[in-house]
């Protein structure tokens, strides 16, 4: 059986990769993908925990996360498409209308 530590290290690494993708890439799509990776990293840690303690709560939570991730991706991708139509750009720094007119 795979020890819990291995699962947790893998989940952490995945989470960091996702976070780095969110912060470093200058593209809205890549940010959404990064967020997905981070969500799945969290799901992996939950599954690992559930297996270790023989408890189904963790796996139930993962199902929830999958549902939320699906909803998030559908809304997020729609927004990205809309944003691209408006600005012809996917660079997140082009969208700073909330900062006031400067």
């Amino acid at each position: 059986m795979v020890p819990l530590e291995h699962v947790l290290v893998l989940a952490s690494l995945l989470f960091l990769v996702g976070a780095a993708c969110v912060v470093a890439r200058r593209n809205l799509l890549m940010i959404i993908i990064g967020v997905e990776v981070m969500l799945n990293a969290a799901g992996l840690a939950l599954v690992g925990g559930s297996l270790y303690w023989r408890n189904l709560d963790g796996q139930a939570l993962v199902v929830f996360i999958l549902a939320v991730a699906a909803a998030e991706v559908s809304v997020g991708l729609a927004l990205v498409v809309l944003a691209h139509r408006r600005r012809r750009s996917l660079n997140p720094d082009d969208f700073k209308m909330l900062g006031g007119s400067r």
Binding site: V22, V23, P92, D93, F95, K96, L98, G99, R102
Partner: peptide, 10 residues
């Protein structure tokens, strides 16, 4: 707080 998304995320 200049409205740049990347800065916020960071």
């Amino acid at each position: 707080s200049g409205g740049r998304l990347t800065v916020y995320l960071f």
